[in-house]
């Protein structure tokens, strides 16, 4: 009953947001901001088109490769810095400073190296995703309570057994949190790359629609990206909660 009331409250806020959109639309006019209903009908028309899917595919391909890179490099870096204490102590502040840097500044360098290619967008996406994955993995390993390792030794577990049955489950929730943030930032990186300079992709589509003053298309793409990220995040969060409850 409490859950339904909470869901209803959340729904009310969602409705208020849509109404605010409508009001803003009425104030600034349809060219600057189309209302929610025209946007929805445009979305229904535009999303099934080949043009949308070609660009979505371009984004998804770049995002997929970038994500694989983010996870592979981030996890290796995190495991290394978590296990090897000195590397962790030396590297952590460096990682954190790079993490908080406006990485868009470096995109021209990526462009100079890779040109307007897929590899450039993948690299830039991975540059965003690697750091949170690495930092959270490192912390997860560092924060393993020493008593777990003592328990593993009193139970005469082998090295392999210790890793599989103790270390992995103990670190998993925090590692998954890192993967979730890495997912989000990698997507942001790919989109920023497409917005800055690209000939395809959803980020390009938004900027292109803006310069052509096709605000409906621009908002449609933004809303679709919003939904994609929100759903993916909800799934990863759900996984994280399940792991936490078990832990």
């Amino acid at each position: 009953m409490i859950a339904t009331r909470r869901a209803a409250d959340t729904l009310v806020i969602l409705i208020v947001l849509v109404l605010a959109w409508q009001v803003l639309h009425q104030i600034v006019g349809a060219t600057a901001l189309p209302g929610p209903l025209p946007t929805l009908s445009y979305l229904a028309k535009f999303v099934p088109t080949a043009r949308f899917w070609e660009n979505a595919e371009a984004t998804l391909v770049a995002f997929f490769y970038a994500l694989v890179l983010s996870y592979a490099i981030g996890l290796s870096l995190g495991v290394w810095m978590g296990i090897h204490r000195l590397s962790g102590a030396v590297g952590e502040p460096i990682l954190i400073s790079i993490y908080t840097l406006p990485k868009i500044t470096l995109y021209p360098v990526v462009l100079l190296i890779f040109g307007l290619s897929l590899s450039g967008r993948v690299t830039f996406g991975a540059m965003h995703g690697i750091l949170p994955v690495a930092i959270l993995t490192m912390n997860a390993i560092r924060n393993i309570p020493p008593v777990y390792l003592k328990a593993a030794r009193t139970l005469h577990l082998s090295r392999r057994q210790t890793i599989v049955t103790v270390l992995l489950p103990a670190t998993l929730p925090e590692v998954v949190a890192g993967l979730r943030i890495g997912f989000t930032l990698t997507l942001l990186g790919v989109l920023l790359a497409e917005m800055f300079a690209a000939k395809s992709g959803l980020g390009f589509l938004i900027i292109n629609a803006m310069s052509l003053l096709q605000t409906e298309e621009m908002i449609t793409v933004a809303v679709m990206l919003f939904l994609f990220a929100a759903v993916a995040n909800a799934l990863l969060l759900w996984m994280e909660h399940k792991l936490h409850r078990r832990a």
Partner: peptide, 25 residues
């Protein structure tokens, strides 16, 4: 409580994609 889901999602979506929308407005 009602806002909780919004907070949990906020930084997961690339808010920045709404920058061009703001420029349009």
């Amino acid at each position: 409580q009602a806002l909780d889901p919004f907070f949990a999602t906020y930084y997961a979506v690339p808010i920045f994609i709404f920058y061009p929308v703001m420029v349009a407005i």
